[in-house]
Structures are given as C-alpha cells and as structure tokens.
Amino acid sequence: MTEPWRSLVVIVGVLAIALLVIMAQVWLERRIIARWQDRRGPNRVGPFGLLQLIADVIKLFTKEDWTPPFADRPVFVLAPAVVMTAGMMSFAVIPFAPTIGIVDLNIGLLFFLAMSSMGVYSVVLGGWASNSKYSLLGGMRAAAQMLSYEVFMGLSLAGVVALAGSFSLRDIVEAQRHGWFIVPQALGFVVFLIAGIAETHRLPFDLPEAESELVAGYHTEYSSMKFGMFFVGEYVGIALVSAMITTLFLGGWLGPWLPPLAWFGIKTFFFMCFFYLMRGSLPRPRYDQLMAYGWKLMLPLAMLNLLVTGAFLAAR
C-alpha cells in the first residue's frame, strides 16, 4: 500500500474506532454507574442493552432541531462543532501502539494542550450565543474554570516533559520503558487528573452545567444533534484525557505478554471507569471553592512538582 493511502486508512480507522468507543462509553457509563448504585442500567435494547446507544442516536437525530429566535445564529451553530472538532483533532497525536497513530509531531503534547484550549471556546460561545441567563452563567463559569485549570494542566506536564526530554508523545512513551512516570511524577499525575476532570467539565467539576443550579448551563437552549454534539464532545474529552494519562504517566502501550494496543486499551478503560466512579460518588464543589483549589492548591503543587523534578534532573 502506498504511503498516502495508508495514512488515509489509519486516519479513518482511528476516527471510526474513537467515535465508536465514545458512543459505547455512554452505554458503559450508564451500566457501571447503575452497578455502583445497585441497579442494572439499560438492558432492554439488544443484548445487555448494547443497542441503547443506537436508539439514543436515532432519538437525538429525530428530535426537533430548534434554534431560539433570540440566539446569535451563526455562533450558536458553530459552538457545538468546535468541541467535537477540537476533541477529535487531539486524537491525531496519540500513539495507540508502536505502529498505530496518525501523526508523530515533535510538539505532540503542546498540540493536545492547544486543542484542549480551543475546546473552551465551544462552551463559552455556546453559552453566550444562546442569549439566555442560565446559558450565559454556565459559559462564564466555564471560561474561568477551564482557563484556570488549563494553566496547571500544562504545568503538571512539564515534569513529564523534563524527564522524557521531548514533547513527542511517542518519545515520552519510549522513555517509560524502564518505569512508568506515575512513580516519579505522582504529584504531577494527581494534578493532571484533577485538571483533566475540570477541563472536560465532568462531575464533580461540572459547574458549567450544574443541573441543580443552572438548568443545564451552557447547553440549556440546545436540542437535537446540536445538543448531541456537546454530549459527544464531553465523552470525547473523557476518552482523550484517559488516553493522555495512559500515554504520559502509565507507559502508553508498554506492557508484558499482551499486544501493545491491548495494553493501551486496558489502561485507558481503567481511567474511563475512574471518571465514572468520580461521577458516581463525589459531590460538586462550590464555585469559589473550585477556583480556590485551582489557584491556591493545584498551582503551587504543580510548581513544586516541576521544581523538584528540575532539581533532581540537575543533580543527576
């Protein structure tokens, strides 16, 4: 197979599998959370309720696609597309296995951070363009929350970059051949995990949505597939952050016996489940608490982590 064709196949394959995994997550999350709440979850449509997601997609597609007359139409339509695009773009740099992966940028990690900072726009603009109170409140919360947590999301990764000596995700995985970075970078790992949750605005940090306070926050006015895209965008975020944690701290595809792709899948799956566990058990902090954790706890921790890592590297 010639080179362009091969890359096209890889791109389409990765996109298709990523989308499939993301859709399957909706089912997985409902089943797992049901398990934790002593329920059974969706089990009616198809075997084990697996076709539930198809039913949901059909439902979303056939719902009325309503744009409020008071909304800023072009921005309103643009916002949900941004979150999907930014999320899916980030999958381009993730190395799934030694030979599978769309592109190996020497700034792969920065690309991921850049795309995640693009994702902020969808929430902020969606909230603004809806032109309603709760949406605006959600959008404002999202802007401040995601902007703050982005700062030390980047900082927490600086230690990993320093240890690996490269921004390329492939090099970072290779550098973990003799020990995963979760051990020397435990602090960075915790900070990245928390920042990742805040960045994907998942529970417990779902203040931009906060059903009990803001109706549905920034996507209050959205319906049908536009809502669906926000919904899928959230799960793209979960898959992405889980895959990034796997790559950066848990040695990516590295592991004995099993094929590399299987190791990558197992580790990513583990972190997805952790995301669901967080959703199933933790209460939402207050907004000022969230910002205080961010700037007064996470930022110093990330700085300390970088400082210690730097000192260690300098001493070696």
Binding site: S117, L125, G127, A144
Partner: peptide, 28 residues
C-alpha cells in the same frame, strides 16, 4: 517553527482570546 505555532494557539488563541471573550460576555 512548530513550537511557536503550538504556543501561538495555546497562549494567544487559547488563553488571551478567551479572556477577551470572557470580558465581553460580562459586559453583555
């Protein structure tokens, strides 16, 4: 210059512009 490109997106398009949007949203 891929490094500068990524920083351009992260810092200018990602962070500074969000602040602009944030302020303008506040002004309503």
């Amino acid at each position: 210059a891929p490094f500068i490109a990524a920083l351009e997106v992260m810092v200018y398009a990602g962070a500074i512009m969000v602040l602009f949007v944030f302020v303008i949203m506040m002004l309503n």
